[in-house]
Design a protein around this nucleic acid. Sequence first.
DNA 1: TTGTATGCGTTATCAG
DNA 2: CTGATAACGCATACAA
Lengths: 326, 326
Amino acid sequence: MTVTIKDLAEKVGVSVTTISRVLNNRGYLSNHLKERVQEAIVELNYQPNEIARSLSRKKSNIIGLIIPDISHPFFSELTKYIEYYAYEHGYKVLLCNSLLNRAKEKEYIDLLKASQVDGIIMGSQTISVEDFELINLPVITIDRKISDEIPYICSDNYEGGRVATQLLIGKECKKIAHISGNLQLNLLAKKRHEAFMEQVVQHGVEYVVVETDINGFDLKDYERLVHKLFNDHPDIDGVFASSDVIAMQVVNECHRLGFQIPNQVKIVGYDGIAQGYNRNYMISTIEQPIKEMGKIAVENLIKQILAKNPPAETILPIKLLERETT
Amino acid sequence: MTVTIKDLAEKVGVSVTTISRVLNNRGYLSNHLKERVQEAIVELNYQPNEIARSLSRKKSNIIGLIIPDISHPFFSELTKYIEYYAYEHGYKVLLCNSLLNRAKEKEYIDLLKASQVDGIIMGSQTISVEDFELINLPVITIDRKISDEIPYICSDNYEGGRVATQLLIGKECKKIAHISGNLQLNLLAKKRHEAFMEQVVQHGVEYVVVETDINGFDLKDYERLVHKLFNDHPDIDGVFASSDVIAMQVVNECHRLGFQIPNQVKIVGYDGIAQGYNRNYMISTIEQPIKEMGKIAVENLIKQILAKNPPAETILPIKLLERETT
DNA sequence: TTGTATGCGTTATCAG
DNA sequence: CTGATAACGCATACAA
């Protein structure tokens, strides 16, 4: 039932090659011919078959996107832009949520390879470096440096950590907590932690650090973590949270405990997602240029696909958004 | 460089047909043979080519997902579950954000058809019914009834609207505002508005209704809308917002104006996304069973793909979550 | 400028 | 139970 270029060819009275040519606009073709083909296309309601194209060209124009969880606002916003720019460049996006499950992440990589994607953007990264290097496909990494071969994109984590911590110190916080992402994953976000440490030590400020679980981030876990933190250290008067989602939990806990923000406790988050749909409480935060990150991720991946070398490292500037929690 | 079943065949010393058989586990095959093929697979590092499979089988095992905007928490959460269940059933998900742009929505439909997706889940719906019927592919619709032919899934919008409005009336609100989604789009969410109207009229409560723009939902627009609402009607003491995102804007505006919640103004939202990552303020809301919606959307689409008739209509129950804003 | 023939990697239809 | 061989729909080297 499906109409193919063969049918078009018969209809117009030329060969399939010619049809293929006008479809791809290759070589010289008379306008008359073009018109007749166009007519036949609408008449027969022809739809090109990308699968056949992909097989023949050995290029699918699909990019795979592996992230931990699309429902996390940072990733949903990043994904929005990745999809947007991919589409602009003629690429489609296959979405994979690893849920930070190492096995699932590996399965997805195989799935994407089997699906002949032209490249992968990795926002999830629990697998080992060795597994990573087996991918053998154009890859761009978000927020993790795997090796010198694989280009990565991140925001200026060190500077973000420094600015956030200095903000709290500058506001005379005496005991500052840092709620960090998991440090074993060796993400570049770890630099936020490093910067935090340097600042508090340098200024002689009392501090406490807790980190989130390695096996994924569940909101309930965040809640428990924050609850325990304030339980163990009721005298905390400053918190640097490594994401806005966590910062919001801190806000909630403070509400619950009756702590005034920012009088008694000052809070600064990270990500800047509080700009999008998820803005609600005016938390102070370090804004990552999410849109830009998505754009460059796509562009650099495509460069790689086209065998032009993209920069190995892209560090984008962050911005302090000071609002009501500091 | 790519290794194909042909290479496997040579290596093992059988025909490609046989290889294909063991790969697909069809017919009788000796264990010895299976083992030898398995060995060859790891030895040659064989990766199946899904594209070739798809072309041959005329089935891609890809489903297309068109939504307005993945960064909207309702859709990101829905998408999470759609992807999850699709994967469970052996399907991949191609993500498309229409941004409520009619032209883009149509382009995406063509793109998905060209990509030979096996079916489409439509969470975005600005195109006309006629365009819709041209899709000619298995489709499941979220929250919109197109025709008797196209199965749809929604939560019990009418009941949700009723419960939300009754909650406010029961708490003695004297002037209730309803911030509705756009009513021209003719979504099933319109029933929330109908239920609201019935309730306020029936109880003789003063009311005001505003609706969001048809051309997409930008947070800034929401802000302006809410701001204007309270400017025009400073005496509002109850708000039923048609999404949690909007409800949060109302919370923000009340904070700004110094209105006490829930003493002076009571607010109830819709969606229940405030359960996931996006929970922060404890807004009272009508919870939609998002996970269930995603699950059933996938299952019913697959039924359709397999030519088993799924139910034409699936209405899932909502739940009132009463928290701090009422 | 246009057409013929072959390949892309896999599945499916037949004989044997 | 196994193996040629023809699809699947399109692109392209090579001819004409």
